[in-house]
Design a binder for these strands. Structure first.
Lengths: 349, 349
DNA sequence: GACATAGCCTAAAACGTTATAGAGAAGCCG
DNA sequence: CGGCTTCTCTATAACGTTTTAGGCTATGTC
């Protein structure tokens, strides 16, 4: 019944010192063959388990990594966390996962909490591009452990970053639409100011420029919520000069776009072509099957984990590394040729 | 620059003892007004942060709760974790979230790791109904902290449990199909042996019995993977006496059913009615909109958290509590009346 | 005034681990 | 053989917190 066995009990039973027992448990210093065997046996006999809380206290690592995402219920982030978890387990780390809900104050609170837990490292999709730099500029020097910024904050000084090649992705998506003859395009996103989103828009604009359509874009900012997005999109689709194609910059925007089109009884892609973002199982049940820009989630996770473990292993000092991963445009059924239609209002401009 | 301030520094600066400073930080024992103010000021001045690793070691709680789910990338579990996280944050707890991939050995490993972290409690969707009982039957008495079993393992002795009223849900779904005139029904699920699944099937069979159709059900076991499920369903749909309605017992099964029907060019609900399980945003983009049994995910989370905190606060000893939450059948577009059709093979039986 | 009580505070002992400093034995080199 | 290194091991001091067991005032009671 009594309390769980400690390393002291193990040492006693094995007839060696506590230090030796400890060294067997975490191969920190070499231990002779005979002692090692005795200790291993004692551990098995007592069913001893290392107490990580104590281990962490004495200066060793916690083998705990914080993962911070805007919303774990979003399929994109859930997929990311899932992959990171697999990699972390392989290296003997556990994950402390938190959601921020796109709220800067909450992000700050949650990251502070993670620091109080002495996490060894941090993988974070920050709420704002610069929200992490604030942490390391306090008067007491850096507060953050090694951190990798994923998806956002690619310009933040002093951090390793992983993100998609957003400009190219935006270009490819828009280009596929202009190639189909669309001349009235709209972009749907949540809000201003995130670099990755701006890059997607920049790529989109580049394609428009090439098609001789500069200035003919509209950007719909619909907020974080599905319903507010849908409302904003419907307003745009109700205009007489409504767009014939929509490029949704996140998977939630894509869903909102589909719902808006359905609500207005617009045929996809007959009346409205839609290019979405991200790619996951349930999209396969959609009819029409969504044309989308797939981000390489697995590669995001692998790259982030590689960068983080590099720092964790002390191979730290090298300059920051910025990884940009290519997206793939998956052309499916939700995009089609622009249907010629009366353009009274647009022509009158 | 120097190392982070400790409670010792705070005490020194405030001119009080370490114990008093500690008592201010965690209102464990009352502290006089004057001392309290001095300590609070010192904390602010030094930007002191409690070190939870040390705090945990000295026997106090870790304020860490383990959450174990089969797959965080599954929308149902992601939603559950999301809600639990919100509740946990409100009470000052952090979550250690892990996925098991429906693998018993992995579950065991992961839970062991959580125990080594001295988690205060555990919320778990176990791989098997009895997989947790094994933990508390070791020779050294219970190893697990207070644990709540969610969704599965409702019969496990000694654990608080939360799950849906699966029998009623199965009955409601099947009844809605028999009421539409369907006489050839199939159930799709992953594998045998999970109590909640068996209950859903039991409810399903009860409805069949009431409709005078006992023995006319078929259960399709398609495994964990989407593609294997789809394959198993397609085989069934290719029979001459194929079912006219499918009841999918999880959201993954529902997706597989839709894909199988599409692959065989069956009209939903004209050729095949489908009732799914779970309900979430992306289903709203489906056409036809899926008829489904919605589990009350928020209530799952609230109930689980309530049961766990009850134990955590020491109000422990009362017997175990088993909560059963009602599901709601959302009848939408993927179910319709059974279309009369040639029944040559079925009649020949 | 003696004595109990309550309220606030402190010194010091844990908690279970790892890091440090060094001891003892064995091997190598001159 | 003496000094050096190498290898293995040990005793002990941290790590930062909470808890325990008292101690010291002020207040009230007989």
């Amino acid at each position: 019944m009594g309390r769980a066995p400690t390393i002291r009990d193990v040492a006693l039973r094995a007839g060696v010192s506590v230090a030796t027992a400890s060294n067997v448990v975490n191969g920190n210093r070499p231990v002779g063959e005979a002692s090692r065997r005795k200790v291993t046996e004692a551990i098995a006999a007592l069913d001893y388990r290392l107490d990580r809380a104590a281990s962490a206290l004495r200066g060793a690592s916690t083998r705990l990594v914080g993962v911070v995402v805007p919303d774990i219920a979003n399929v994109f982030f859930a997929g990311l966390v899932h992959r990171v978890e697999a990699l972390a387990e392989g290296d003997g780390y556990d994950l402390l996962t938190v959601s921020t809900g796109e709220d800067a104050a909450k992000e700050r609170r949650r990251v502070e909490a993670l620091i109080a837990r002495r996490i060894d490292g941090l993988i974070i999709v920050p709420v704002a591009d610069d929200s992490m730099t604030a942490f390391n500029s306090g008067r007491d020097g850096p507060r953050l452990p090694p951190a990798v910024l994923v998806d956002r904050g690619a310009g933040a000084p002093g951090f390793d970053t992983v993100r998609a090649n957003c400009e190219a992705a935006g270009y490819a998506a828009a280009r596929s639409l202009t190639d189909l003859g669309h001349r009235d395009l709209a972009v749907v996103t949540h809000s201003r100011g995130l670099d990755n989103i701006e890059q997607r828009i920049a790529g989109f604009r580049r394609a428009l420029g090439e098609a001789g359509l500069e200035g003919r874009d509209r950007v719909i900012y619909g907020g974080q919520e599905l319903e507010s997005l849908r409302g904003a999109i419907e307003i745009e689709l109700n205009r007489p000069d409504r767009p014939t194609a929509i490029f949704a910059l996140t998977n939630v925007c894509a869903l909102a776009s589909i719902k808006a089109a359905r609500g207005l009884d617009l045929d996809i892609p007959g009346d409205l072509s839609i290019v979405g973002f991200d790619d996951f199982d349930w999209m396969g049940a959609l009819r029409p099957y969504l044309t989308t820009v797939a981000q390489p989630v697995d590669d995001f996770a692998s790259a982030a984990w590689r960068l983080l473990t590099r720092r964790l292993k002390g191979g730290a000092s090298g300059g920051v590394e910025r990884i940009e991963l290519p997206c793939t445009l998956k052309v499916r059924e939700s995009t089609g040729p622009a249907r010629p239609r009366l353009r009274a209002v647009a022509d009158a401009r």
